[in-house]
Design a protein around this nucleic acid. Structure first.
Length: 890
RNA sequence: GGGCGGAUAGCUCAGUUGGGAGAGCGGCGGCCUUACAAGCCGUAGGUCACAGGUUCGAGCCCUGUUCCGCCUACCA
């Protein structure tokens, strides 16, 4: 046979590269800027350009690819906009580390050369992550790939900055911000990760200037005392009322600072006296403003103590300084006690360094007015968040939003489009670099040295990638995008900010749906991280099991609202599924060597009709599940269908027909049905497992081109003619039960599978009688029977084992083989099981409340179930008695 | 401190408007049956965390408790 050459096992590595290239070269990922078709668009969450693919990406990309490939099959004009993010701090760190291996510090080579080095790095390694996305099968429109530092996107960034500035929504000022001493830059609130930590709380005595005993303050950061400019007590705290108007002498410095009263102080916490360090604590900063206190900055940008800290401490590292200060306080008798204290402290999300709250001049976005519109859009369901539970988090965050610090003191990123006149100090904010100062005409303009937060440019991604600020055709066709697929970890970082910017600048939401997916964890539920060493590398998995196996696993586990615990074992299981599909195709292709004739309903057998009916249902269900982002439901639905219906039942049932044992007509029916099922199944599965489906598609006679260009089964002409055949489904269910009943006896009675059996089925139900007669060959084949006879209900033959299915008494002749003791034991077990069920029904039916209050349909159903069980029990008992009487004779 | 989510078979989890508890993996027994041993057939296994409540009826709805996660917060 022609197809004997098809491999027995599916080998992904040989297949995947071939088809990806085929798709790309044939332009199958390309979106059309204008078309009559319904547009469907997704912008990719841009991965970090220096990053490598992890499982989180894999899930994210897989889900998007499923949606895109599915929408193409449904006939949509699909745009999947790809690209990468310049990831300011992270990328700068990577390149700096690389330079360090050559013994070079970025300050040695200077800003210009350093930025050039980063671009060089990007040119060299920037494709790595893109290539990994391709390995995953991502069907992005690569011709449109964007980078957040592209000219076009940079222009969008400048325009947004200028417009927000002119609208008063961007301002610059001196505030306490979160400073990372290692990255040497300001961070936004969001970029600080809080972690519980075992620390200490220090009680320090501040003596009164007049020599009297002063307040004792409590602090977790004693080194900041060097920058104290006041001590605050609560105005109604009787303990401290006598301090009113007095001054203390700040230990170790000798500076005199006032005791002030402020209702902010919590009398019940610590000592009730609060040291005020406006330059190093956000609350103290606020209090300082109210009381017009000076700010003394004792910790510098480098994490070392400043000159203001005093000669002794200047230049010390902040942690070393703490040790020395505590030592000195102790020696001078100021330190009253040290207590253990558990509290949370902030770390830089990029490098985990302890963040220092520091007074600094930065640029901020005034977020509240922007947030309002973004909240409204979700409240009005212009954007739907799925699953809905994330809506609350979104609202809560938006409603408590604080201004967004957007300036970063690094070199890699979008320069801030602001210039200062060296002559008159005029600040100029403009899209293009100004030639001269508009105030004094000077040409000595200096650009602000800071760059913008990376998320500032990511926030524009849904429209900047489509050419904004130009009014492009792409924008017109594809904005707002259909759905954003992302993890909840960047809901605030990214989604919320895109909502704000989209609503403000496009006057429309950036996406109609947001599908928030879970996190991928290790098999113990721990977050995968390099430091825990529990990372599963998608590329290693792909090499071992194939991309399709990985994708199907992720989809099958992507239940809404629950994290995915991933282990290789599971991937292996789904790899087996791919192989199962492959072998189902092999079997089919052994017989289907040419495209079979169209299905002729008049020659179909029961199994054929059943299978087609199931296909119809599954096609609808899968569509429904994907439409609702229930990826796991969709995946499991097809899995069940392919393996346990198509393979386990249909193909097994169809084998004799395919081999021509049942005549030409049945062969024709089996050929056309199995072709049809395989054909449609490939389409249903293609969004999930694109490679293997494409491979089989090309082996299947009667297909043309790519499966990507196929029509989703329920949209195909003629699909309506596939009957939803509930009669066939019910009949097949009974036939399956008969077969399973016989197999059960075979298994339980330890009868060799090779031994063909004789079976008698007794019933007075004439419909069932003819059903069995008509499908004698089918049952005989699958249950491995020698003979199958049908008769009216009557005396049960001896030396048989029995199964009761519906109103059928199935007797398996076991002359000479039967172990009567074993058979009676088996029946006893079943009787006991049935008895329990009957009791449960009876309890309901004897309950007057149930009869009076439950809906009639429920009562009817319960009653018929009860009747059925009773009937079955009766038959079982008869058989049990027969067997018992025989075994007693023996 | 506040909020959210979870607790269902040995393990990982489904269970969409309340109506006789499911899958995959693992276990056990039997099979190299000419698509597949990455397989086939059969089978065991659950007081649906605990305590109340609503209801004729609760895994599902309500209240409380316990134990795990996660997010969030400026109490020094």
């Amino acid at each position: 046979m022609e197809n004997d050459t098809i491999n027995k096992g599916y080998t992904p590595e040989a297949v995947e590269a071939k088809w990806y290239e085929f798709w790309e070269q044939n332009g199958l990922f390309a979106a059309s800027e204008e078309s009559g078709r319904k547009p469907f668009s997704i912008v990719i969450p841009p991965p970090n350009v220096t990053g490598i693919l992890h499982m989180g990406h894999s899930l994210n990309i897989t889900l998007q690819d499923i949606l895109c490939r599915y929408r193409r099959l449904r006939g949509d004009n699909v745009l999947w906009m790809p690209g990468t993010d310049h990831a300011g701090i992270a990328t700068q760190n990577v390149v700096e580390r690389n330079l360090a291996t050559q013994g070079v510090d970025r300050h040695q080579i200077g800003r210009e050369k350093f930025v050039e080095a980063v671009w060089e790095w990007r040119r060299k390694y920037g494709d790595a992550i893109i290539n990994q996305l391709k390995r995953l099968g991502a069907s992005c429109d690569w011709a449109r790939e964007r980078f957040t530092m592209d000219d076009g996107l940079s222009r969008a960034v400048r325009k947004v900055f200028v417009e927000l500035y002119e609208a008063g929504l961007i301002y610059r000022g001196n505030y306490i911000i979160n400073w990372c001493p290692r990255c040497q830059t300001a961070l936004a609130e969001l970029e600080v990760e809080h972690e519980e930590h075992n620390g200490h709380i220090y009680h320090i005595h501040y003596p009164l200037t007049d020599g009297g005993e002063g307040p004792v303050v409590a602090t977790t950061r004693p080194e900041t005392m060097l920058g104290d400019t006041a001590v605050a007590v609560h105005p109604e705290d009787d303990r401290y009322r006598h301090f009113n108007g007095k001054y203390v002498t700040l230990p170790l410095t000798g500076r005199e600072i006032p005791i002030i009263s402020d209702p902010y102080v919590d009398v019940s916490f610590g000592t009730g006296a609060l040291k005020i360090t406006p330059a190093h604590d956000p609350n103290d900063f606020e209090i300082g403003k109210i009381h017009s206190l000076p700010s003394v900055k004792v910790i510098g940008e480098d994490g070392l103590m400043t000159e203001e800290a005093g000669d002794k401490y200047k230049g010390l590292d902040r942690f070393e300084c703490r040790r020395v200060v505590v030592e000195d306080l102790k020696n001078h008798g100021f330190l009253q006690k040290i207590e253990d204290y558990r509290h949370s402290i902030g770390h830089c999300y990029r490098c985990q360094t302890l963040v220092e709250p520091n007074l600094s001049k930065q640029w901020f976005v005034k977020t509240r007015p922007l947030a309002e519109k973004a909240v409204e859009a979700v409240k009005d369901s212009e954007t739907k968040i799925v699953p809905e539970k994330w809506k609350n988090d979104y609202f809560k965050w938006m409603e408590n939003i604080r201004d967004w610090c957007i300036s970063r003191q690094i070199w890699w990123g979008h320069p801030i489009p602001a210039w200062k006149c060296a002559d008159c100090d005029e600040l100029v904010v403009a899209v293009e670099e100004p030639k001269k100062c508009p105030a004094c005409g000077s040409r000595r303009l200096e650009q602000d040295p800071d760059v913008l937060d990376t998320w500032f440019s990511s926030a524009l991604w849904p429209f900047s990638t489509m050419g904004w600020p130009d009014q492009t055709r792409l924008l017109k066709t594809f904005y707002p995008t259909s759905v954003l697929v992302t993890g909840f970890d960047i809901l605030f970082f990214w989604v919320a900010r895109m909502m704000m910017m989209g609503c403000h600048f496009m006057n429309d939401v950036p996406f109609k749906d947001v599908y928030v997916h879970a996190l991928v964890r290790d098999e113990n539920g721990k977050k995968m991280s390099k430091s825990s060493g529990n990372v599963i590398d998608p590329m290693v998995i792909i090499e071992k099991y194939g991309t399709d196996a990985l994708r199907f696993t992720l989809a099958a586990f992507a239940a809404q609202g629950r994290d995915i615990k991933l282990s290789e074992k599971r991937i292996e299981g789904y790899r087996n599924f791919i192989n199962k599909l492959w072998n189902a195709a092999r079997l089919t292709l052994m017989h289907v060597t040419d495209k079979p004739a169209d299905i002729d309903p008049s020659i179909l057998g029961l199994a054929d009709r059943w299978m087609l009916s199931r296909l119809k249902k599954v096609a609808y269900r899968v569509a429904e599940a994907i439409d609702g982002y229930h990826f796991n439901t969709a995946a499991n639905e097809i899995y069940q269908f392919v393996w346990h219906e198509f393979c386990d039942w249909y193909l097994e049932a169809a084998k004799p027909a395919l081999y021509g044992k049942w005549g030409e007509k049945r062969k024709q029916a089996a050929l056309s049905v199995s072709w049809r099922i395989l054909h449609d199944t490939l389409i249903l599965l293609h969004p999930f497992i694109p490679f293997v489906t494409e491979e089989i598609w090309h082996l299947l006679p009667g297909t043309e081109g790519s499966v990507m260009k196929a029509v989703y089964p329920s949209d195909a002409p003629g699909f309506e003619q596939i009957a939803h055949d509930s009669a066939a489904e019910a009949d097949m269910a009974l036939v399956m039960d008969i077969i399973t009943g016989i197999r059960n006896i075979r298994g339980e009675m330890n009868i060799a599978p090779s031994l063909a059996l004789e079976v008698l089925i007794q019933t007075d139900n004439t419909a069932h009688q003819s059903l069995i007669k008509n499908n004698q060959a089918l049952i005989g084949n699958l249950a491995r029977l020698n003979s199958l006879n049908v008769a009216s209900a009557g005396e049960k033959p001896k030396a048989t084992a029995t199964a009761i299915v519906d109103d059928l008494v199935i007797s398996v002749f076991l002359e000479g083989v039967i172990d009567f003791a074993q058979e009676s034991q088996r029946l006893e077990k079943e009787i006991a099981k049935l008895d329990k069920e009957i009791q449960a029904f009876l309890k309901k039916l004897e309950n007057n409340d149930f009869i009076n209050k439950a809906p009639a349909a429920v009562i009817d159903k319960t009653r018929s179930q009860y009747d059925e069980c009773v009937e079955k029990l009766k038959k079982l008992k008869q058989n049990f008695d027969t067997i018992r009487s025989i075994s007693e004779f023996q």
